[in-house]
Amino acid sequence: MRFSAAAREKVFVAALLTPGLLFVVTFAFYPILYSVYLSLHRIVLGIPSLGRPFTGIDNYLRLLEDRVALHSLINTLLFVFTTTGFEILCGLIIAILINRSFKGRGIARAAILVPWAIPTVVSSQMWRFIFNDKYGLLNYIFYGNDTHAYTAWLAHPATAFAAIVIADVWKTSSFAGLIILAGLQVIPDELYRAARIDGASPWQQFRRITLPLIKPAILIALLFRTVDAFRVFDLVFVMTQGGPADSTNVLQFYGYKKIFTEGLMGYGSTISVFVFIISLVVSLLYIRVVGTRLFREK
């Protein structure tokens, strides 16, 4: 039996796509649906005698009244806004500095990439040590030898939250910087030359040429960073365990607590579904904005 060329190509494409599809469907898409299923049941790990009674939307109603969940939603949103804001700002500065060619640029660029490469658990332990109340570097920088003034930064709600923001901005600004840098590098030099001839000041050049042309790159950096900030976990787990008084409790950490330390597979899955929907909405929103922008330019 002989197949036509077109049929053979179809079989070929299917063969190429199958392995990847298998992984993604089994371990990413099916689990999402499974989460939805679990969220409609009452399941407590460790009490199998309970069975898994179907409870409809009970878990979702419970979520609406859960103050800690609301608190962690607010914390997550606050974390997303502050970190992405600072990261884009720092990234912009990094990109502008590194865009110029100078001696040692390669080494400077590699040095800036180091925080990005460090495992988050490691950078979290590192910052936890710097913020330490008894012998942390930060206390020494602020108060010197006056150990009575030393502050337990991670034990106060506002400073603990600031600490995880700082740790995140330190680690991921370089990533934002690289994306923005890639955007800067495609701006043709002639534009700046023409602007200079017309007598534009450096600030005007930045406002009128640089900023509009790197907007797509900024949006992409913003998208990646937002998605990532939504699932912050390692920092919170290592530095604060969500405390003090839930001031650094974030959605992903809260869901983890419910499912894996309290064993509430059903209710925890409700939080999972909720987190999934929020981040899906945010990404779709961004992709719409970024996508249309990119297609218009093409």
């Binding site: 990847g20 371990f27 990413a28 898409f29 679990l38 939504f230 894996f260 999972s272 987190v275």
Partner: peptide, 24 residues
């Protein structure tokens, strides 16, 4: 659609699949 869904996987918050993956 294929590429879009693949990219969507990279944007999933891990917690949204953690329970089921653990169970599987």
């Amino acid at each position: 659609l294929f590429m879009g869904s693949l990219l969507a996987v990279s944007m999933f918050p891990q917690i949204s699949i953690a329970g089921p993956v653990w169970r599987i």
